[in-house]
Amino acid sequence: MSLRTPLGTVRGLGSAKTGTEHWWMQRVTAIANLPLVGFFLYFIVAHLGAPRSAVVASLANPLVAILLALAMVSMLWHMRLGLQVVIEDYVHGAAAKLALLLFNSFYAAVLGAAVLYAILKMSFGL
């Protein structure tokens, strides 16, 4: 018999050390992605094959730069959560799983840092 109250059990979060954050953030980023993905795709198609000056000119508009940055952050966040589930579902060796989960986190972080740097650099006209 456990002497812990139901509230204490919930606060303790069990051996997983997390509650519903993963599921919840997957939904939060999914909702954010719905409009951002539309903008993102339009930006790509409109600039595919365009000269560099056209991309820089578009990003000089702060609205475009901020929307593109938000789109990248939200999509990469969502991507990291999704790939994490795929790895946890299919990779069962402890070492391989840990290595892939770490790589997954670093992959999202590196892509995010690189793309935000690129967006800001062009937006500031540097």
């Binding site: 790509i44 820089v56 999509m75 991507m79 992959y107 892509l111 793309v115 740097y117 690129a118 062009m122």
Partner: peptide, 19 residues
């Protein structure tokens, strides 16, 4: 979802190249 995760590296490359 997995394919998009792989494709993201191409788009980051494309935007980085523009910068």
């Amino acid at each position: 979802g997995v394919a998009l995760a792989l494709g993201m590296v191409l788009l980051v490359w494309w935007l980085s190249a523009a910068a």
